[in-house]
């Protein structure tokens, strides 16, 4: 039997955030908002959820005059993402096998 897909990651916005963060060292809120095409409010909620799960680290600080939020994926987040992708691949392989038989 397959492991269930990580429900925290199996959400369009959160998966998009994690996929972006896996490719960069760190990224700020504006970058994530533009790339995911979501609203600031929505993105905040998803970032909080990922942060609470320990998948990302969030740093909030004042840069000059404007507040900035910078996110970085944690080792736990990398493990969760890799495990998610592996489970996804297993699902796809089994689905393909099922279609053949």
């Amino acid at each position: 039997m397959f492991k269930d897909l990580d429900q925290l990651l199996h959400s369009q916005q959160r998966l998009a955030v994690i996929s972006l963060l896996i490719s960069v060292d760190e990224a700020d809120f504006v970058f994530l908002r533009e790339k995911t095409g979501t609203t600031a409010g929505n993105l905040s909620v998803h970032i909080d959820k990922l942060n609470e799960a320990g998948y990302i680290e969030v740093r909030k600080f004042i840069d000059g005059k404007r507040p900035r939020t910078v996110c970085r994926i944690t080792p736990a987040g990398i493990d969760a993402f890799e495990s998610y992708v592996q489970t996804l691949q297993e699902y796809i392989q089994v689905k393909k096998g099922g279609e053949k038989t």
């Binding site: 990224a27 909620v45 699902y91 796809i92």
Partner: peptide, 24 residues
């Protein structure tokens, strides 16, 4: 605040991962 959670299948999921990585 309640967020919109779109249900999506494994193909869409993989496509999203690939798209985001290529955007970065």
């Amino acid at each position: 605040m309640k967020t919109m959670e779109k249900v999506f299948d494994e193909q869409e999921s993989l496509k999203l991962i690939t798209d985001m990585i290529s955007q970065a």
